[in-house]
Each structure stands twice: as C-alpha cells, then as structure tokens.
Amino acid sequence: MIRKVAVFGATGSIGTSALDVIARHPDRLRASVLAAGSNVAALVALCVTHRPDHAVIADAALLDALASALRDASLDTTPHAGMPALDALARDAAACDTVVAAIVGAAGLDSTLAALRAGKRVLLANKESLVLAGALMMQAAHDAGATIVPIDSEHNAIHQCLPADGDCSGVARIILTASGGPFRGRSRLSLADVTPAQAVAHPKWSMGPKISVDSATLMNKGLELIEAHHLFAMPVERLDVLVHPQSLVHSFVEFIDGSTLAQLGLPDMRTALAVGLGYPDRIASGVTGLDLLQHGRLDFEAPDTDAFPCLALARGALAAGGTAPALLNAANEVAVSAFLQGHLRFLAIPTLVEHVLGTLPAAHAASLAVLRDADARARHVATQAIETGAVH
C-alpha cells in the first residue's frame, strides 16, 4: 500500500527535504497534501512536480490566487486556505495517513494535534508544539494510537538508539549534541554587535531563519531538552547536552549497564525523514554514508551557558513545569522575530526571555486553553518590553 503523506510547511527546508525523499519512493510514498504559509508561487511549483490531491495556503486571503494558479497549471489539485482547512485535512483519513509537521512556531500546534487525535503517523519537526503543550500532545497520541517519529536530528537519533518497544527502564541518561552554532567559542562580550545575517549563517545545517537564530543562542538545544522530556518520558536531571562541532554524532543514549549508543551520520535532514517515512523499514534517503577517515576527528565540549544563557533558561523552565515552557517559547519567538527585524540586539534575546519568565509566574497547565492564554500573555509582555525599551 502506498503511504499518503501530508507535508505541512512544504516550502521550507524540512518540507523540501521530505519531498525529496518521497519522490525517491513512488512505489511506497506519495505526497497527497501540500501546505504552505503565504508563498502561492512556491506552493504551486511543488504541486506541478508532486501532483497532490490537496494544496493549502495558510493565509485565507490567498485562496483565489491559489485556485487561479492551480487552474493555470492545469492541475486537478483541490485548493484550500486557512488554518481550519489544514486541521480538517490533518484529520481526514482519505486525505493522508502520515503528516510531516514542519510548520514553524506555535502556529503548527493545532494541525499537529488534529493529526495525533486522528491516530495518524506524525513526523514531528515542529518543536514548539511539544514545548508549548507536550503533555497534552503525548496524551493525545496515546489515546488515539498515533505514532510520533521525531524528525529533529537529535531526537531521531535517540529514537533509533532506544529499544523498539519504547521501554526506557534501562536508560540512565540521554545526551543531546549541539553544534555550538556560528558563535561557538566566542565570549558573551564579543556577541554584542552580532547581526541577523551572521546569526543565520549556520556552519553545518541548512535551516530557516528562526531555527538558525535559536541554534546561535543555544535556545534550540534548550527547546530540544523539553522535547526529549516529553518524547521519552525522561526527567530533567537525566537529560544532558554536549557541544559537538562536527555535527556527525547526533545524540547519545547511556544505559544503566554502562553501554552508550550513538547515532552518526552526515548533517542532512533527509536521513531522519527517511527513518520516519519508512519506519520500521529502512529506505534510501539520498544521503551518502559517513566516511570517518575523511572527517578525521570527533570533538566534544561542555556548553558555555555564560555566553549562551538560553540553554539554562530552558532547563529552568522545564524544571519549573506547568506553563513555564510555554512562556519561554512564546517570549523567544517574539525575541527572535524582533532580532531578525533589527528591533532587538542579539544579546537581548535571552534578556527578554528572562524578563517574561520573571514577570509571569508559572501556573498549572491544566488545559490547552490555559497554555494558549500563557502563550498570549507572554507575547504581550515581551512585545511591551521591546516597545517601551525596557529590553532593547
């Protein structure tokens, strides 16, 4: 049977990598739904190549433009617009059985939850949804019998190293690796004049601007700690981070018998996507094998939380629990957006996050409504701090 795959965030780096893998396996995979934010031309170009049944543009005002462009391209693809349409297709059993959840930020939460509640296989690349509502998402997956395969290289590595039955009773620690980003080894003082162009120039991975900035601040690794806590039911004291600049070892799992397993590979998201799309089978990804003789050496060092305090802020939010991770995530999204637009200094990103966490105490995360309220309040406080110059 051919697996019908919905790619949410199809025009982004993860989406295009997913489509590359899908196109390599026409006998077992088909892109049945493609979704993008506002780039109609890019979405239609992908539809011409992959011929999906449905195309969704998140901006509801662009429905007519999408429909017209699909007609002009002589495609039978059905046009949709707006996030509710995305959620409906995520639930629709006829539309897809697998969802690549690659929409950036908290905007990806609803469609991911819809897919999980429908019992779909979800290839989870949207880390913010787990950070915002991890406990609710994992419960939804459990209740509906959905399968989550994480697509972050680190969590995918852990997924590959853990027992197939999901039993983590023999796990002592999970150790996430971090490249260190473009500013590894620099002092906090030397980061005062960092520009957005410098921050998005990641030395190893090709990623979108938001995740690239998160990598530069090490917030990305902090969010991944929170993800790992939910995905693998691992308490914060058994989660660690090592900086590994070569980005060839994607994470470690240490077991209680003294064994440590690691997953290695070239820094290419198609490997993790092939694991998710083919699971439990192995399928070709288009990525070549790792030649360790060519690469020569593997280095590891402790993260510098003085120069990069976001990692410590995320660990603290995870320890605090409740709405704290949602507050952290929302404040960081506002901060990164402001930095990319030139309204906030690079070093002010963690300052703003810390300001929001200090202003809004964590509360019990009793429901999605409570988490959304925390998200909204954090965004308001963060935006106000920028506009008033309290953080700049």
Rank of each mutant, 00 (worst) to 15 (best):
I2T: 12
I2V: 14
V5M: 06
G15R: 13
A18G: 12
L19Y: 15
I22L: 10
H25T: 13
D27R: 08
R28I: 09
A31R: 07
V33D: 06
A36L: 04
N39I: 05
T49K: 15
H54N: 05
H54Q: 05
A55Q: 09
A60Q: 15
A65Y: 01
A69M: 03
A69W: 01
A73V: 00
S74K: 03
D76L: 02
D76E: 11
D76A: 10
T77V: 04
T78F: 06
T78K: 09
P79Q: 03
H80P: 11
P84A: 10
A85Y: 06
L86P: 01
A88D: 14
L89W: 03
A95T: 10
D97Q: 02
V99M: 13
V104P: 11
L116A: 13
V122A: 07
L123K: 09
A125D: 07
K127I: 11
S129I: 08
L130G: 12
L130V: 15
A133I: 12
A135Q: 07
L136E: 05
L136A: 15
M138S: 06
M138R: 14
M138V: 13
A141W: 09
D143S: 01
D143E: 14
P150R: 08
D152G: 03
S153E: 03
S153M: 11
H155M: 00
Q160M: 09
C161R: 01
L162G: 07
D167A: 09
C168M: 07
V171K: 01
A178M: 13
G185L: 07
R188S: 14
V194P: 13
Q198N: 14
A199C: 12
P203V: 02
W205L: 02
W205C: 01
M207K: 08
K210R: 15
A216R: 14
A216H: 11
L218W: 02
N220W: 08
G222W: 00
L223E: 07
E224I: 03
E224D: 07
L225Q: 06
A228Q: 02
F232D: 01
V236M: 06
L242P: 02
P245A: 01
Q246I: 05
S247G: 01
S251N: 02
F252D: 00
E254S: 00
F255C: 04
F255K: 00
L261Y: 01
Q263S: 04
L264S: 01
G265F: 06
G276I: 11
I283G: 09
L290R: 04
L293A: 13
L298W: 04
A302G: 07
A307K: 09
F308V: 12
P309V: 06
L313H: 02
A314G: 14
R315V: 09
A319P: 02
A326F: 08
L328I: 05
A330N: 05
V334E: 11
V334F: 02
A335L: 03
G342W: 00
F346N: 08
L347K: 00
A348S: 12
A348M: 01
I349P: 10
I349E: 08
L352V: 10
L352Q: 07
V353D: 12
V353S: 12
A366N: 06
A369D: 15
D373R: 13
A376P: 14
A378E: 12
R379H: 08
T383C: 08
Q384P: 00
A385Q: 06
E387A: 15
G389H: 02
A390V: 08
H392Q: 08
